[in-house]
C-alpha cells in the first residue's frame, strides 16, 4: 500500500509500539505481581537518577533566573522575578528537563540492559524458568518509570525553585519567606496539576520505548547499542510531542 519504505517502516514501528503498550497494560492487570523486582527497579530508576536530575534542575533554576532578570529590570518589574521564574519552572522547565534527563539515563539504560539480555538469551532463560519475562522485565520497569518520573519531577521543581531563590539573591535581595510567598501566590492548581500529570505520561513514554527497543533488540552487540541509542532518541522526541499534546489538553480543560 505504501511504497515509501521509510514511511512504511515508521508506521510499522508505531504499530508495534502501540501493541507493546497495549500488552503492557494487559500484563499489568494480570495477577502475579513482581513486587520486589518493582522496588528494585524503582531504586535504580528513581533514587539513582535523583542526583543527576537534582543537579540539572538546580542549574536550570539558577540560570533561568539570571537570564530573566535583565528583561524584567528593563520593564522595572524586577519584583516579579520569583513569580515569572517559578511559573516557567513549575509548568514547563522542571518536568521536561527531568523527563529528558530520565530519557537519557533510564531510557538508554533499559534499552541496553534488555537488549543485552535478549542477545544473551537471558530473556529466553527467564521464560524457561517459569517466569513471564514481559511481566518480570517490562511491566516492572515501565511501572517504576511511571511512578518514579513524577516524583523526580516534583523534586526537580523543589530543587530548581531553590536554584531560582539563589538566583534572585545574586543581584537583588529577596527573602526566603517572600520568595516562597510569591511562588505560592502566583502558582495555582492549574499550574501544578497539569505539570505533574504530564510527567506520568513522560514516565510511560520512557519506560515503554526503552523496553520496546531492548526487548526486540537485534542480535549482536551492535543491536544492543542501537537499541540504547534509538530508545533515547525516540523517547526524547516523544516527550516533546507529549508535552505539546498536554498543553493543548490542559488548554481545552481550562487549565490556563
Amino acid at each position: 500500500m505504501f511504497y515509501n519504505k521509510a514511511l512504511d517502516s515508521f508506521l510499522e514501528e508505531a504499530g508495534d509500539i502501540s501493541r507493546f503498550t497495549a500488552k503492557f497494560f494487559r500484563e499489568f492487570l494480570k495477577p502475579r505481581y513482581e513486587f520486589s523486582e518493582f522496588l528494585r527497579q524503582c531504586f535504580y530508576i528513581g533514587y539513582k537518577s535523583f542526583g543527576l536530575v537534582a543537579v540539572t534542575a538546580f542549574i536550570m533554576g539558577l540560570v533561568i533566573t539570571i537570564q530573566s532578570r535583565p528583561t524584567l529590570v528593563e520593564f522595572g518589574a524586577e519584583a516579579w522575578l520569583p513569580k515569572m521564574v517559578s511559573i516557567s519552572l513549575i509548568r514547563e522547565i522542571a518536568p521536561v528537563i527531568t523527563a529528558l534527563i530520565c530519557a537519557g539515563k533510564i531510557g538508554s539504560g533499559i534499552g541496553a540492559e534488555l537488549g543485552s539480555m535478549r542477545v544473551t538469551e537471558q530473556i529466553d532463560a527467564m521464560e524457561v524458568s517459569g517466569t513471564n519475562p514481559f511481566k518480570f522485565l517490562v511491566v516492572t520497569r515501565v511501572t517504576a518509570c511511571i511512578t518514579m518520573v513524577p516524583i523526580l519531577a516534583v523534586l526537580a521543581i523543589a530543587v530548581s525553585l531553590y536554584g531560582a531563590y539563589l538566583g534572585c539573591n545574586i543581584h537583588g535581595v529577596v527573602s526566603w519567606k517572600l520568595f516562597w510567598n510569591q511562588v505560592f501566590e502566583t502558582n495555582t492548581f492549574s499550574d501544578v496539576v497539569p505539570a505533574v500529570t504530564k510527567t506520568f505520561f513522560f514516565g510511560l513514554d520512557i519506560g515503554i520505548i526503552g523496553c520496546f527497543k531492548g526487548y526486540f533488540s537485534k542480535k549482536g552487540t551492535e543491536g544492543v547499542g542501537r537499541s540504547a541509542n534509538s530508545a533515547v532518541v525516540i523517547s526524547s522526541l516523544l516527550i516533546f510531542v507529549l508535552d505539546l499534546v498536554a498543553v493543548q489538553i490542559a488548554d481545552l480543560l481550562g487549565f490556563t
Partner: peptide, 25 residues
C-alpha cells in the same frame, strides 16, 4: 535448558541466579 550463551542474569549474583528458577517454580 542450557543456553548457548549461558544466559546468566548479569544483575544477579551466582546464588540469585541459581535461586531464580527455584523460586519461580
Amino acid at each position: 535448558f542450557l543456553f548457548q550463551s549461558n544466559a546468566l542474569y548479569d544483575s544477579m549474583t551466582v546464588r540469585e541466579n541459581l535461586e531464580f528458577p527455584l523460586r519461580r517454580h
